[in-house]
């Protein structure tokens, strides 16, 4: 995983509550056996007509979304299915942070493993951000994970919380599987103590 660095970008607002991962990437695209090529399928049914032409009203089809790396989402973003295809599609489109008042648990974990920052802000700050970005579509924000601050060009500066371990993993690009593999001794010791078990090979 690449280390997560400070960046600035325009903000794409999608202020809808409870956006589920079936919207982020519909299930029919999950027949793939690869992680790649999912950017086209991001928000597919909100983004395209039945014949595949882009819906001009949808925010991701507007010029302001081009090159943008911050999504300003509604409450409880990423609920529903555990599909990691959701953060894969978001990052392949170019997003590096999603801002919301809260995230569904599995989506949050999946995002952290793919260098996508789930950035939690209080409801008042969320409302101010939304107002600012609706007033100025070109408004830029800077995400600084090191200092846990989101600074908006309009002068707004928001401190955001993040789990200490998750922060370290993002900043240093630590691969969590690698971290657990290093615990081999503890895992083996635990297995020695395990008295009972199923055996699916029996």
């Amino acid at each position: 995983m690449k280390p997560f660095t400070k960046f600035s970008s325009r903000i794409v607002p999608l202020p809808i509550a409870n956006v589920d991962t079936d919207q982020i990437i519909p299930a029919r695209f999950l027949k793939t056996t690869s992680k790649e090529g999912l950017d086209q399928q991001l928000f597919y049914d909100w983004r395209y007509e039945a014949d595949g032409t882009p819906k001009p009203d949808f925010i991701l089809n507007q010029p302001r979304a081009r090159g943008a790396a911050i999504l300003l989402a509604g409450d409880n973003f990423g609920c529903g299915s555990s599909r990691e295809h959701a953060p894969w599609a978001l990052t392949q489109f170019g997003f590096r942070a999603v801002i919301s008042t809260s995230f569904a648990d599995i989506f949050k974990q999946n995002s952290l493993k793919n260098s996508l920052l789930p950035l939690v802000v209080p409801a008042e700050a969320h409302a101010m951000l939304l107002q600012a970005v609706e007033g100025d579509p070109d408004l830029e924000a800077t995400v600084d994970l090191e200092s846990q601050t989101l600074s908006v060009a309009s002068g707004l500066r928001i401190q955001f919380p993040i789990d200490r371990f998750a922060k370290m993993c993002l900043l240093e690009g630590v691969d969590q599987l690698g971290y657990v593999l290093k615990q081999e001794e503890a895992i083996a010791a635990f297995e020695q103590k395990r008295s009972v078990s199923i055996n699916t090979l029996a």
């Binding site: 555990s82 990691e84 974990q109 493993k113 969590q176």
Partner: peptide, 10 residues
Amino acid sequence: FGIGTSEVEM
């Protein structure tokens, strides 16, 4: 627990 694919790998 329901988990994502990175966790399946883990």
